[in-house]
Design a protein around this nucleic acid. Structure first.
Lengths: 353, 353
DNA sequence: TTGAAAGCGCTAACAC
DNA sequence: GTGTTAGCGCTTTCAA
């Protein structure tokens, strides 16, 4: 790094003391308007910027926050976490923090899984995104470093969380379908043990309850082990084979499952949305490219990152007792997979007579 | 950050001076085996770790390297740059550097496009990945900060580069096809002005030249404006409509174009690899999922990141005069889109008589 | 409202 | 081999 001006140079040139310059830089204490302006001018002339390491040393902080996610999450093709990172980086800038990004393996391994910024105590707080091993979370927790969990909720912890509003998401989906005239609405879910999926299920169930609609067992398929495309495909087959009539619309636990479902329907000659409406969740890129494009639920990932950093900096300032659970709002994206196909059905039934 | 032991605590407890401890930590100078062991033991006992800011301040360096890529590149669904980042982070660890990742807009804008670690001079060197605006590169260059360009080659610059060996890639592709018995090999390229694409074209051309095969104009389509899937689709149509007979195999400038080409062939009833063999380039995720899975060229992204950091640290040490141009080796991934379909053709032609 | 001086934790001469 | 000491550039009492 090339030689650059120090606070001393600024002081000398502005003919004031070091501390005055420091006060100006940090907008602290009382400095007369005239000296302030003078100092600011010199700073500009010299192109002065405080040296981070010196400041951090004096302040006894690292000036960094760590961002941890799993390898899988970081290199997955859906840019979900990268967008969260971008939001985090944007907000960190406002608080004068740098973000140290690192990935860890899914399974905990006390030798390799511990990010070096933790070993070296080079962060003032940590952001954890997605399903990071609870052992690691416990480890960090034991170091007494402020933590904010993003898009992941584990039980029995005392950290702040930033999640998307899963419950509200399926609520929006149901409202949309009700407005279109649907009364028979199914839910295609995978692993209900996953907190997010369960919230989505609850949002669906409560909304129909509130609308006075009694959910038939045959409208729900939630026995799949996971929530991937293949699970959606299998679940769709289960729907078709259960001997009951299909609901007029289905809400899937996520887009991947919706796409799998769509694929099976297509193969079985069932048309979306003509024969049945379909809603996904997550607004992944592919949800837009399938035929028909999926109506789905979107969340602002950038905002998740921003909020997480804001919460983390507050925790750093207020101490570890500060805990906050934030749900980021979701929005309904209406595309072609939902329609008033209730009418079609009625028409069809009429024809059948 | 909680109170932690300093070098002073270690010295006191080990009953040695500060400098001895420092020497032990940094593996410098001469320290007797016995004191070294004593100090190391105390360090372990106290769980001591040097404070970065203090060290950086004393060393007058930032201890960070910047990693710049465009927003588009970072959030694209193909995890190309994220893998490069991972490799870079891995190597940075060895050199005791932290990586500050930031994205910039594609178009340069002197107000917003300049990463803050540059303004604040908080990096000792910079990695630039992909097509970052040349204005920004010039700006950084003017700051006299060491730069290494990754996967991007601009003319007239004096920086080190880490590129994949594009030339060797198409050479491998041609060799593979020749081994299968192909003699009529086409090239489906887009924008030949792009340095990487041009290298791929050259590798193709030179290999056929060396094999004594004279390339027919009709085997080459390189008039498309870009290298996306749609361009491949269009190029494939051009092939079919030029009135000449198709070559027996085609090498595309990248997987995206190959997939577009494949799609058009499928629509036109041309079977891959039965009627024609097809090779892509880049080994993107989708190249594996199309039917048939594409034979393609792969490069180790992780290694690109590692190499870039290694080169950068060398430049930081040796000064900006140090320039190195490194090509990362590529490998051929044989899948189902290539076959000895030359024989099929011959058979067909025989039948036609 | 401004200045002097101590100290943050570490490195690197230089002396012993 | 090991200890002493003077910074690195900044913040922050405490006086003035």
């Amino acid at each position: 790094m090339k030689q650059r001006p120090t606070i001393k140079d600024v002081a000398k040139r502005a003919k004031v003391s070091l501390s005055t310059v420091s006060l100006v830089i940090n907008n602290k204490g009382y400095v007369s308007q005239s000296t302030r302006e003078k100092v600011e001018r010199v700073i500009r002339e010299l192109g002065y910027h405080p040296t981070r390491s010196a400041r951090d040393l004096a302040l006894r902080k690292s000036g960094n926050i760590g961002f941890i996610l799993t390898n899988d999450h970081f290199t997955q093709s859906e840019p979900f976490y990268t967008k969260i990172f971008l939001g985090a980086e944007f907000e960190a800038q406002k608080h004068d923090y740098y973000i140290l990004l690192t990935t860890v393996e899914k399974k905990f391994d006390s030798l390799n899984s511990i990010p070096r910024f933790l070993k070296e105590q080079n962060v003032d707080g940590v952001l954890i995104a997605g399903q990071v091993s609870i052992e690691l979370i416990a480890y960090i927790s034991s170091m007494n470093i402020p933590i904010v969990l993003i898009d992941y909720d584990v039980e029995n912890h005392k950290h702040s969380t930033v999640l998307m509003n899963n419950y509200r998401g399926t609520q929006l989906a149901v409202e949309h379908l009700l407005e279109l005239g649907h009364k028979e609405i199914g839910f295609l879910g995978g692993d209900l043990d996953h907190p997010s999926i369960y919230q989505r299920y609850l949002g669906y169930k409560d909304s129909l309850d509130n609308a006075g609609i009694i959910i038939k067992d045959s409208w729900i398929s939630a026995k799949e082990p996971d929530t991937k495309q293949q699970d959606g495909y299998n679940a769709a087959r289960a729907f078709l084979n259960n001997g009951e009539s299909l609901p007029t619309a289905i809400i899937a636990a996520n887009d991947a499952m919706a796409i799998g479902c769509l694929r099976h329907f297509t193969e079985a000659g069932i048309k979306v949305p003509d024969d049945i409406s379909l809603i996904g969740f997550d607004n992944i890129e592919r949800s837009y490219h399938v035929k028909p494009p999926l109506t789905t639920i979107d969340v602002n990932k950038f905002e998740m990152g921003e909020t997480a950093v804001r919460t983390l900096t507050e925790t750093i300032i207020n101490g570890n007792g500060y805990v906050n659970h934030i749900k980021i709002p979701v929005t309904l994206i209406v595309r072609e997979s939902t329609d008033k196909n209730v009418d079609h059905h009625i028409k069809k039934r009429t024809h059948h007579k």
